[in-house]
């Protein structure tokens, strides 16, 4: 793979922008342009700043430059029979680790593996003063200073430029199998609820169009025992989780009326409206397609937070968010047109 330290150029560009009072918009591969896009000021391209800084399979850690493609990292980890300890989407098979960090999105494994934030151990950033700063480290337990590395996850680049991230990784499960069970929403909910009580090795769930899909990960005997306990389950291809994660699943084909929510768990199962519905994360994330307005959705499902389409939030900033932005980037050099 290509290894390149582009930090001198990045720091220089930031220094120049500071001097001239200009702003910069940060760009990786652009794989999440549908989710968030920024166009204020000069483009700051990060994808040339790439490569693995250190990979320690025995420590379960990897440090990588922000421009490194996620799929390259996945390949390196797979060679040691390891994987990321989170499940970030790689839309179109592209996507850099820096972009994944800045957006903080999670795929179907989120409730079991955690989100990107949970996997971060340390970060190197450039703030709006043009200073190169390191927070956190490469060890699992570290409570020295405020947890700035995790604050940067999902911050959409408004606090500063991410140069590199240190991540916790995990061993690949010995076996991974996916199964499908035809079920109405009530039974699907029941199967999931029962599996929680019996330590069934589930690492992903989805419910769509009368079918409950489950991913089972672990040792062979555990999975066999779990499979034996699920009646009428048929084995399916593991790739279904990648299609779900990267939105190539048929549900996501027409994105015109796509909305999602993170409900208080339990509530998405009782929806009786007409929109197509896909439930992930054991009921922790639900997608709707074809619902014309959010109010209807909200009332029919008691969703705690229905969101418009797949966009990053672009609402009003809270007082403390504004002040934090000020604390890191007082001149609004980075992604000035975004509100988080």
């Amino acid at each position: 793979m290509i290894e390149h330290d582009d930090s001198a150029r990045l720091l220089d560009t930031i220094g120049q922008a500071l001097k001239r009072g200009k702003s910069l918009s940060i760009h990786g591969h652009g794989s999440k342009a549908h989710y968030v896009s920024t166009s204020s000021g000069e483009r700051l391209e990060t994808s040339d700043h790439c490569g693995v800084l250190e990979y320690r399979p025995d420590e379960l850690t990897i440090s990588v430059r922000a421009g490194t493609p996620i799929r390259v990292i996945e390949q390196i980890l797979a060679n040691e029979n390891q994987m990321l300890a989170c499940d970030p989407p790689q839309f179109d098979g592209l996507g850099t680790i820096g972009g994944a960090a800045a957006c903080g999105l999670s795929g179907p494994g989120r409730p079991w593996y955690g989100n990107f934030r949970d996997a971060v151990l340390g970060i190197e950033v450039v703030n709006g003063h043009g200073e190169r700063l390191k927070f956190g480290g490469t060890v699992m337990k570290n409570v020295a200073g405020f947890d700035v590395s995790r604050l940067f996850i999902g911050s959409l680049g408004v606090l500063g430029l991410i140069l590199s991230v240190n991540l916790r990784v995990q061993p690949r499960p010995q076996i991974e199998k996916s199964i499908e069970i035809a079920a109405d929403a009530d039974s699907a909910r029941r199967v999931i609820r029962q599996s929680i009580g019996t330590s069934t090795p589930i690492t992903a769930t989805s419910y769509y169009d009368g079918n409950l899909q489950l991913r089972l990960s672990g040792i062979e005997s555990s999975i066999e025992a779990a499979q034996a306990s699920m009646q009428d389950a048929r084995e399916i291809d593991n790739d279904c989780w990648i299609r779900l994660r990267d939105h190539t699943h048929p549900f996501f084909k027409d994105k015109r009326d796509l909305r999602f929510a993170w409900p208080n768990r339990g509530s998405p199962w009782v929806y009786e409206g007409s929109a197509a519905r896909l439930i992930e994360w054991s009921g922790g994330q639900v997608w709707f397609n074809g619902a014309s307005n959010l109010v209807d959705l909200d009332q029919s499902t008691e969703l705690s937070q229905p969101f418009d389409r797949t966009k990053a939030m672009n609402g009003g900033e809270s007082k403390y968010t504004r002040r934090l932005r000020q604390a890191f980037d007082p001149n609004r050099i980075f992604n000035a047109d975004l509100n988080v």
Binding site: F146, G154, S155, W262, M313, G315, L324, V340
Partner: peptide, 19 residues
């Protein structure tokens, strides 16, 4: 945060934890 897995906006929760 709250009773669900994610929330919108800047994630201040990890900042408060350990502060």
């Amino acid at each position: 945060g709250g009773d669900c897995y994610e929330s919108p906006g800047l994630d201040l929760l990890p900042l408060i934890v350990g502060s």
